[in-house]
Write a protein that binds this DNA or RNA. Sequence first.
DNA 1: CGAGGATTTGATACCTGTCAATGAAGGTGG
DNA 2: CCACCTTCATTGACAGGTATCAAATCCTCG
Lengths: 235, 235
Amino acid sequence: MLAPALTEVAVCNAIAYAPAPHNVLSPAFFGGHPSLIVTESSYQSNEEIYGEDEPAEYIYQVLRGAVRVYKLLSDGRRQIGAFHLAGDVFGIETRATYRVTAEAITDATVRLVKRSAVEKVAQNDAKIACALWAASSGELRHAEDHMMLLGRKTAAERVATFLLEMDGRLAMSSARSLPMCRRDIGDYLGLTLETVSRAISALQAKGVVELSGARCIAVRKRDRLAAIAEVECTL
Amino acid sequence: MLAPALTEVAVCNAIAYAPAPHNVLSPAFFGGHPSLIVTESSYQSNEEIYGEDEPAEYIYQVLRGAVRVYKLLSDGRRQIGAFHLAGDVFGIETRATYRVTAEAITDATVRLVKRSAVEKVAQNDAKIACALWAASSGELRHAEDHMMLLGRKTAAERVATFLLEMDGRLAMSSARSLPMCRRDIGDYLGLTLETVSRAISALQAKGVVELSGARCIAVRKRDRLAAIAEVECTL
DNA sequence: CGAGGATTTGATACCTGTCAATGAAGGTGG
DNA sequence: CCACCTTCATTGACAGGTATCAAATCCTCG
């Protein structure tokens, strides 16, 4: 992959963006340290941001749009590990290469900082290092939940869980409709797009959700949806 | 859960253990800082070490034996996120509570350090903070691979992947047989124990592996096994 | 308005789960 | 030392959930 085309350059401190705080990541290192150069870049829908096993050169934060990160098998089977929405930080690595491929789902704008610069700062600033640790740990918490979903939940439970997750996160980023198609949802949930579609139709038939267009899904009975999602037992 | 019964107490620097280096975690913070009190504790087979959503009081390292970490659904479905063998560090958290339950698979001995002490050190020592970050990042890399397995691989591929993983890790810890039962393997791979058993029998019938007792599985044709495992496409 | 992709829905196949029975292994006590 | 018991593992028969293949409809965008 080529270096992303930069559309704007600015010193970190000058950035006034204040994206909604997000569940997983607290990006203290974006906007927290004077020696970090922060730039911006935009991608079209379905454009690759970085590829699996490429050198991990940058750390990213979504400003606008949505991003999917995934792994592929040799025959094309795809597993999407996470969706990243406005405010989310992604691409944090401790090894030389990215673990996954990242692509823009919609047209998207991201902020980025050089990973080498962040690493240099982290080695002397424990606060920054802890923020990076917290970010990776947050991603790990999500992955742990998602392994439960992929390994043990039924199709109906997976889709209900997904709709609850997106309902919460999209509300936060003030988006009103899903950025991803049924195939993306299927590849996130370990299902086919047909099974996802059928499960959503079933929820609609029960009056649990209401669709106004395939991408715009309103939750009508959140408690019913949560019950179907089989929320993890906390004993 | 009650506080673990401590069997031995020693100041960090006095500890001379040198467990085999492991794939995921570099335990630099065990034995690297004079202010950290390291203790030891032993657990019997199937004994709980800590529970999901309990306050995360300690960080652990396996000295002997094996540990499973898992989440449960309310109806008892279980997803094992990882197995930890001699040398592995587990229980690292940035939030107040553990994300998963940890149990001894076999009789096991662990080292532990107070999480609050580690955290205090990490906030002033960027080296330690980076080591913790690297540990979480390593777990995340494993989780990302495992999501691929759970979401998109067939039963035969999952079992082949598992046998390759264990072959590598057990060789490192000089163990000759699997510490976990078929049910544990199933709950790790998102399968039933019967499906695991059938897949192993099929591999045996093809001469890819050879069993001398259910827990002792020798890889005969590693390349065949790797081909079946559908190793991730690196493009 | 037309074209192509996205979504829904239906029919059918197949992989894996479920239920059940048998066999092997390991631990305990007579 | 052996018999018994319990747990673990294997194997078989069958059912069911999800994938696959196919077609119709909807929607978006040029």
